[in-house]
């Protein structure tokens, strides 16, 4: 019971780190980016190549995965996404699905379509008993890292100068520009960090989520659920949504395997109908 709960929390934390970038681009900037999972996949594959291919230590590979995914995100934002911000939702859907297809076959072409496994350090395979729950070191690491990231993000958005610039740029880009905020730069930086975090999540979670070229499509709905349910009021909404989703999915698959992922999709539909702006929407948000 507790073991399941803990696994669910770890799973949810992963979903949060991957999807938090999306909750800003999609939830705040209204950019329908179905290709967000592709950045997570990029991070995962970079880690696989570094750790398995070049023998880079796992913990050194994680920051590299973050930076590399962020750079890919920045490059795509500057060259492609920047033209899509103001397009219609239909165009954004077409564009990002196109990117997903390209990423999937690109990876399958270059690396192959088999599932990848990262050689984790030995000590991450350890398990220990806490209050009757069996806790894996690997999942504990995920919870700790992702928890710290969540706290840092919340701090950045709520307390720092950059955070207030971002909130201003999202609420009213025109006025924000008038106040001397470089809106394009803020958006680009946000997009890059969001992609980087997705990459980091993909790298950390390759073992739990499974890494193969269908990754962006397989988890697309999950990331969308985190954003849709979490709403756009800061980072706490997506975090709670991701944790709920993780726990529901893990325990759902464990206790009611015949229903599989039903519960989650039905939950998402119900939440969207009940509160189209998400559970934690804020006044004045779009």
């Amino acid at each position: 019971m507790l073991t399941n709960l803990f696994d669910g929390v770890a799973y949810g934390m992963l979903l949060f780190v991957i999807a938090c970038g999306l909750s800003v681009t999609l939830g705040l900037m209204n950019l329908i980016n179905l290709a967000h999972g592709a950045f997570a996949m990029a991070g995962g594959y970079i880690t696989v190549l570094l750790v398995n291919g070049w023998g880079v230590p796992f913990f050194a590979a994680l920051p590299i995965a973050f930076v590399a995914s962020a750079l890919i995100g920045l490059l795509l934002e500057r060259t492609l996404y920047i033209h899509v911000y103001r397009k219609s939702p239909l165009d954004q859907v077409l564009f990002s699905i196109g990117l997903v297809f390209m990423a999937m076959s690109g990876v399958a072409y270059m690396i192959g379509s088999q599932q990848q496994f990262i050689k984790l350090p030995e000590f991450l395979g350890a398990r220990f008993e806490v209050l009757g729950a069996s806790i894996g070191a690997y999942r504990l690491l995920i919870v700790v890292v992702c928890g710290l990231l969540a706290a840092a993000l919340q701090f950045i958005i709520a307390r720092t100068r950059f955070g207030s610039q971002l909130r201003a740029a999202v609420d009213d880009p025109v006025v924000a520009r008038g106040l001397g905020i470089n809106v394009d730069l803020v958006f680009a930086a946000t997009f890059a960090v969001g992609s980087g975090l997705a990459g980091l999540g993909g790298a950390l979670g390759a073992e739990i989520l499974g890494l193969d070229p269908t990754f962006p499509l397989k988890y697309m709905v999950y990331f969308l659920i985190v954003v849709a349910v979490g709403g756009s009021a800061g980072m706490m909404g997506p975090l709670v949504a991701a944790l709920l989703l993780g726990i529901a999915d893990v325990s759902g698959k464990y206790y009611l395997p015949q229903f599989g992922s039903f519960i989650i999709y039905v939950l998402m539909i119900v939440v969207l109908l009940w509160r189209p702006q998400g559970l934690f929407s804020r006044a004045g948000g779009r």
Binding site: L80, K87, F95, I97, G98, L99, F101, M102, A103, A108
Partner: peptide, 15 residues
Amino acid sequence: EYWEFWIGLILVSIV
């Protein structure tokens, strides 16, 4: 095997 890549490219180009 990789025709989806080109479908994706067409989608992106169209937009």
